[in-house]
Simulated assay, not measured.
Amino acid sequence: MKVALLGGTGFVGHYLTEKLLQHGHMPRLLVREGSPHFSKQTQPFEWVRGDIEDNKTLRRLLTGVDAVIYNIGILRENPSKGITFEKLQHEWVVKTAELANDQQVKRFILMSANGVDLGLTPYQKTKLAAEKHLPGSGLDWTVFRPSVIFGNPYGKLEFVTMLKRDIIDSPLPAPLFYEGLLPSNPGGFQLSPVHVEDVAECFVSCLDKPETYSDIYTLGGPQRLTWKEILTIIAKTLGRRKLMLPVPAFAPTLAATALDRFPWFPISRDQIRMLLKGNVCSGERIFKLCDIQPHSFDEETLNYIAAQTGEG
């Protein structure tokens, strides 16, 4: 099967490309002009250089393929460069779906996110709007909603590596965020970290499974871990003990209000808001269907962060 992959040059895209090749498919990646494509795959694959906003480029990408995986998403906007949630996570999904239909490409898999139905932020609202377009699109669609994704990033942005860099490596105590004025259960909000290998395997395994058509699957790892537990496991993997202190959420929120327009500031107001709501879901239904034994979030699975610095 030949598969058009949008968002194939980032963290999750690397694993999607590799899984497609492992399963005997031929990925065709969209690569932006002026953006070098880094790949560790040794097997051949196709790519189309250009921008998704160019209809001709998008048509070239979709011509002659059997399926589309839309994996484009952002955590922060940069409106001055035309990078917005509305464009990347809604408008371009609609455009890609319409052109796929024009090209007689019926299989369409969308990367969404757990919690989008809460509709708390523009990130969530645009992801949900893209999901809602698919039922009337005429496509054989499947939506995946993962929790936070972790795994060896090969130089890309990734959940655990960012926490190591911004919190564990910092000389300051690790913040255990809480809402309100009094420290009630600081750092107690929960997440279900899911390994990128498991995410990619689900996407690729479902390409030719009609039973997954017109369905939405959550993708959470096998554990429900608190923020404090996650930071503790990361520090332990590195052979460290990290001091942690309760921090009221309004403090970083105020800082983000003033500074999150700058790319160097590590977190946005909306990211803080979503984080405090937690991100817990189960992947059991799709893991069972695809015969996947999911990775645990533990020292053995996280050894890539220790290997990067020779720690642990």
Results as ranks from 00 to 15, higher is better:
2 K>N: 10
3 V>M: 06
5 L>S: 09
8 G>P: 05
9 T>I: 06
10 G>M: 05
11 F>H: 05
11 F>Y: 13
11 F>C: 12
13 G>Q: 02
17 T>Q: 15
20 L>D: 08
21 L>V: 07
22 Q>W: 04
31 V>D: 02
32 R>Q: 12
32 R>F: 09
40 K>Y: 14
44 P>Y: 09
47 W>K: 12
63 T>M: 00
73 G>E: 01
79 P>K: 04
80 S>H: 09
81 K>M: 14
81 K>T: 10
85 F>S: 01
86 E>H: 14
86 E>G: 11
90 H>F: 06
100 A>H: 01
100 A>C: 03
100 A>L: 02
107 R>T: 14
110 L>Y: 15
127 K>N: 03
129 A>I: 04
130 A>P: 00
131 E>R: 02
131 E>C: 04
134 L>I: 02
136 G>M: 00
137 S>P: 00
137 S>I: 04
143 V>A: 07
145 R>Q: 15
146 P>F: 10
147 S>M: 08
162 M>R: 12
174 A>V: 08
178 Y>S: 06
179 E>F: 04
189 F>M: 15
192 S>N: 07
201 E>G: 06
206 C>N: 07
209 K>H: 13
211 E>T: 10
216 I>F: 08
218 T>G: 09
218 T>I: 10
219 L>W: 03
219 L>N: 05
223 Q>L: 11
224 R>Y: 14
240 R>E: 15
249 A>D: 09
255 A>R: 00
255 A>P: 00
261 R>Y: 14
262 F>W: 13
263 P>A: 13
267 I>Y: 10
274 M>C: 09
276 L>F: 08
284 E>M: 08
289 L>H: 12
293 Q>T: 15
304 Y>R: 02
312 G>D: 02
